[in-house]
Amino acid sequence: MNSFEIHALKQRTKDIIFQVTAIVGLLFAVTVLLLLLINVFQDGWGRLSWQFISSYPSRKPESAGIIAGLAGSFFMVSLAALLSVPVGIGAAIYLEEYGKKNRLGKFIEINTANLAGVPSIVYGLLGLGLFVRWFQLDRSILAGSLTMSLLIMPVIIIATREAIKAVPQGIREASYAVGATKWQTIWHHLLPISFPTILTGIILAVSRAIGETAPLITIGALTYVTFLPKNITSEFTILPIQIFNWVSRPQQAFHENAAAAIIVLIAFTLLLNSVAIILRNKFSR
């Protein structure tokens, strides 16, 4: 073997070592995910029952349930989506179709990118200072929803912008060329064409909202609630806070409750995420 061949062999070996490392790394990530799921299911599956889903929390772990958290999460997230979807889409349209050239647009763009990276707990303090205290909404569902809507708005804005940006320029030109106004072009063409992608973004944002815990702890959502929310001014709890409460206790039985509630939470978020991913793969090119 000459030195060239030795060199080539060395390179090939390194190449293979790298690939093996990468695959081991991937397997590691997959294993961790599986381990997480298996563990949660092992711990919680036994507790999952209609009784568990339909009961209020209790001091006795075996009779406790998640109905208050489920209901609170459902109302809080629905209202948050209702608030942030129209505003987020509107903001995205402005940034993409109106504000691209001006300073305000560029400033808002940086601002939005930054907001997307602000820790969720900081939104919680914003909600506490602004909605709970200043607007005196107290620890109501409305205060929680408003806080959460601000938190997921950057996600919706960024997803919608990407979706609108992906509409071919030719469609805009064609519409303008027959005398359509800007809003007509947006309403008749850009929004319908980008709708599936926007929907994907909304679903991901909702999924994120369902799993968020910290900001609602900060605004003071309760941990022990034995009633269903009656209206938007009711006090409430959410499923993740219920889980947090149970995890924080030392008793093994409460940990099992937490695991069972996590199964429910994961079922929701994974379902939404899968729908979003399928939707996107179906409509992208």
Binding site: A29, L33, L36, N39, V40, L204, S207, R208, I210, G211, E212, T213, P240, I243, F244, V247, A258, A259, I262, L265, I266, T269, L270, L272, N273, S274, I277
Partner: peptide, 15 residues
């Protein structure tokens, strides 16, 4: 990877 990213952090905390 996206599914991994979509798991709520409270679940990771429990884990």
């Amino acid at each position: 990877l996206e599914v991994l990213a979509g798991i709520p952090t409270i679940v990771y905390g429990y884990f």
